[in-house]
């Protein structure tokens, strides 16, 4: 069984938002909502500055509080690639999962159910990369099986310095940012 994750090279990323727009068209995300977004972190004093640009989304955490807190089982871990997914037909829209996510990765779809990044499971099942990964013009995003030491993501992780977001939240996020 695979354990899918992303490795994103912040040195290449230019913050262009192509990943954001591609997600919107691919997944027909309604206007006013997004499943992924760009965070920019600037440190220092002009002109001695550093800037990290990150393409962020649901981390498909190994320990997802959004799944534990869900009262109906709508939020669940899919066996396939251990993705964290939401079954719309089970969701009552209680928003506990929104409140439980340290990354604020979820939102309420206008149709009433909780929604977020699916890692484009519909594409991955067909052997394609997620839409945001496939579109990125700087090719800074990589998707694959973190449990497979031979995968591109594992090799990248092993070869470079990286960090995850809010590791202190204890969720074990599966998106890694190379620095």
């Amino acid at each position: 069984m695979a354990r899918f994750g992303m490795v994103i090279d912040t040195l290449r990323c230019v913050g262009c938002m192509d990943c954001v727009i591609a997600c919107k068209t691919e997944n027909e995300v309604p206007e006013g909502f997004c499943r992924d977004w760009i965070t920019t972190e600037v440190r220092g004093r002009f002109p001695t500055l550093t800037m990290e640009i990150r393409s962020e989304r649901c981390n498909h955490c190994d320990r997802p509080p959004c799944v534990t807190c869900c009262p109906t089982g709508a939020s669940h871990v899919e066996d396939f690639g251990s993705l964290v997914l939401i079954d719309h037909e089970l969701c009552i829209g209680c928003k506990a999962c929104l409140a439980s996510c340290p990354y604020d990765a979820r939102f309420v779809h206008p149709d009433g159910y909780a929604d977020k990044c699916t890692f484009c499971v519909h594409r991955v099942r067909k052997g394609e990369a997620p839409a945001c990964v496939a579109v990125c013009p700087t090719r800074c995003m990589h998707f694959g099986d973190l449990d497979d030491p031979q995968s591109e993501v594992s090799k990248l992780l092993a070869s470079r310095r990286s960090h995850t977001l809010h590791p202190e939240a204890g969720t074990r996020p599966r998106i890694h940012f190379l620095t």
Partner: peptide
Amino acid sequence: HLGENMHNSQVQEFADAVG
């Protein structure tokens, strides 16, 4: 300002150069 100036091939090549 490549990366903000988004002329595609140039940005792709810029990322390759940085990479």
